[in-house]
Design a protein around this nucleic acid. Sequence first.
DNA 1: TACTTGCTTCGAGTGCACTCGAAGGTTCTA
DNA 2: TAGAACCTTCGAGTGCACTCGAAGCAAGTA
Lengths: 136, 136
Amino acid sequence: MSVIESTTRPEGKDRYTISEVAALTGLTAHTLRWYERIGLMPHVDRSHTGQRRFTERDLHWLAFVGKLRLTGMPVAAMVRYAELVREGEHTSAERRELLETTRRDVQSRIAELQDTLAVLDIKISHYEEQCGGTTR
Amino acid sequence: MSVIESTTRPEGKDRYTISEVAALTGLTAHTLRWYERIGLMPHVDRSHTGQRRFTERDLHWLAFVGKLRLTGMPVAAMVRYAELVREGEHTSAERRELLETTRRDVQSRIAELQDTLAVLDIKISHYEEQCGGTTR
DNA sequence: TACTTGCTTCGAGTGCACTCGAAGGTTCTA
DNA sequence: TAGAACCTTCGAGTGCACTCGAAGCAAGTA
């Protein structure tokens, strides 16, 4: 399968071992296997002897997951999304909804943080007024 | 002490019981006591019989802590800040530094999230193109 | 051939931030 | 005066997301 891949990707390897992916992503091999086990990876290819061979696509997915992780999205929700991807085309509506909900969440997180930033700025400006240091 | 307080605050009570504060903040009494125990509260007043009496100032502090918590700031760092506050005027430089470091952290968190938002928007726009739903 | 890397399953450990319950007491409120 | 709310200390439990180690074996590399 995927003869197409080999012709459309003339530069760079498209199959990475688990330790290579670990080095590239900063995740451990343990964690990568765990991601797969809990269903957070949409099917990882294997070599003829059963070793994992990650593709560029997998790396992209991991990068995406990394981003989602930064938003504080629970792993369960990411797993849900991965499931939908595995299930194919007919889940696209639900996937889109999930992404849009996430987008709203991220936006309100940003708003919260900007709020906090404002509070910090006020606090910091108090210290700036008395710019000597030990002055009351 | 603080006779000033009683005159400058004619409206609203300025002493809250632990259950009132729990109701106002959404934290449990257990958690409020825990905050005090670990040094996250800059000294809570007591009634003559030893019960906690939180002030408006304490509520403000808790609101601030709540904001910091949203940024993902570790509790240890907040405790450090509370310590500095307790230690008095001569720590103001360090406090300011801590706040500025936090501000930078928050700003980069915001940047990360905006990055993620961009990725989400791209993903979502893919779904928008095929606006029928099940269309390939 | 030796060594490294990979595979599996299993289960335990870690760190954080709570969260809860219980025991045994005191104080407040209707 | 009854019952609710408060106090203390202690220690255990929870949920999340890893994180690690070990056992026992297969495959790849110098």
